[in-house]
Nucleic acid binder design. Structure first.
Lengths: 137, 137
DNA sequence: CTTGCTGCAAAGGTTTTGCATTGTT
DNA sequence: AACAATGCAAAACCTTTGCAGCAAG
């Protein structure tokens, strides 16, 4: 099996991801790591995020027209606000079973499940109310 | 409310999408519609797919590093083969309820749910077996 | 001295946008 | 005449890749 070296860059990327729950983009990881510790190339961020994801150390999700990265490996759904783009975690250990229950294992062998709920977060819901009150349709 | 005109291009795109269950990319829709009926610009395909999706006439999913389009509006999950990239539908009327059960409506108001199951399809599973038999690890 | 990792720059792929033109209403 | 939709080309965007140099094992 291929060995890897633990570079400061890789450690900083993982440490940052483990410190937040914001599901950052590669660009955001790059900005945060550059700001905090060391200068680093965006390509290096991509390479490390891909490597970490391949090893199962982090997750890579497809949300909002690009990839988002997440070091929280516990089973959870993502709530995505269609107004502000915010992403919120909701724990859900049972959802894998619920999602794979219908599947005929002779036709498809499930590995993992991704659940994304689209809707409006409390903040945007409130903002919408305010707008309605100020300028009624 | 904004009015629209039903152009041959738009109709052909929708008709094609409604005739398949392959979750094609924009590129694939473009190829199919060009082949079948009329010459059409790729940009027009994108514009119409986006318009149809905004109106809820079709769905746009983020699978495999890009968008896939789907005219089947009935509740269903997607099984994505991590080996060949194939996408298979599985009906699941109950999954919306299961996925939104955990959510605190005061914090997030759900609109719709997307469930993607990653795994290996029967064809690829068989191929893997064959490879194992021929060249054992 | 072999091999992994980095930085930089270039390339690749997908989706969107600007603009002139066409076609409906 | 107003306005939607089209085609084309360019731009924008995100992600990957090639390569030379560096550093760790």
């Amino acid at each position: 099996m291929a060995s890897t070296r633990n570079t400061p860059q890789r450690e900083a990327i993982l440490a940052y991801l483990q410190s937040v729950h914001t599901h950052p983009t590669a660009e955001e990881v790059h900005a945060a790591v550059s700001r905090k510790l060391l200068s680093i190339a965006l390509a290096t961020v991509y390479r490390n995020l891909n490597l970490l994801a391949e090893r199962g150390i982090i997750h890579r999700h497809q949300i909002g027209g690009g990839y988002r990265y997440d070091a929280d490996l516990a089973a959870h759904e993502h709530c995505v606000c269609t107004s502000c783009g915010g992403i919120y975690d909701v724990p859900a250990e049972d959802i894998e079973a619920a999602a794979t229950r219908h599947i005929d294992r002779k036709r498809f062998v499930p590995d993992h499940v991704e659940v994304t709920v689209y809707g409006v977060c409390a903040k945007c819901d409130h903002d919408t109310d305010t707008i309605r009150k100020v300028k009624p349709t």
